[in-house]
């Protein structure tokens, strides 16, 4: 959801904040199905901008937190798939199929939210996601 930030960000700030979301988008294309790539790309961008302005830091943190939870969900799916492929005692099962489909749904939703956030922050709007927004607010101080 779009809300008002404590100050109006400059054009450069808006671009950098938007890039923090784009980082995870580019990484999805390169890293899928290796879930660590997305997290690492967002983490590196976060580290690079940890001394940046409040608006940029805030959005880098929100992007990182969302990638962190996605990393957990995707990692379970990844290692489950590895064991289905390489372990003789693990087979394709209904719970596995359901999990893979759930992971797909969650990733698609997250992708949509990330694209929307990247567009809106580029326009200088402040985007605060449900749960991730308040969490970022607690972690990121002006």
């Amino acid at each position: 959801m779009s809300s008002t930030f404590t100050y109006h960000p400059t054009e450069t700030e808006a671009e950098k904040a938007s890039n923090s979301y784009l980082m995870s988008l580019i990484a999805i294309m390169v890293g899928f199905p290796l879930p660590i790539i997305n997290l690492m790309a967002t983490l590196f961008f976060y580290i690079a901008n940890r001394k940046s302005t409040y608006f940029v830091r805030w959005h880098c943190t929100q992007a990182l937190l969302s990638q962190l939870s996605l990393f957990v969900i995707n990692s379970i799916g990844f290692w489950w798939t590895v064991s289905v492929l390489f372990k003789e005692d693990t087979q394709i099962s209904n719970p596995y199929m359901a999990y893979v489909i759930t992971v797909f749904v969650v990733n698609v939703v997250e992708l949509g939210m990330t694209i929307a956030a990247a567009i809106n922050t580029r326009k200088g709007h402040h985007v605060s996601w449900w749960f991730y927004g308040p969490l970022t607010q607690m972690m990121c101080k002006p």
Binding site: I73, N94, P95, M97, A98, Y99, T102, V105
Partner: peptide
């Protein structure tokens, strides 16, 4: 997330595919 998973797992995907 758990609800979505439980709902999706109600479908017999093994049979469907």
């Amino acid at each position: 997330a758990a609800g979505i998973y439980l709902l999706i797992s109600r479908v017999n995907w093994m049979k469907l595919f």
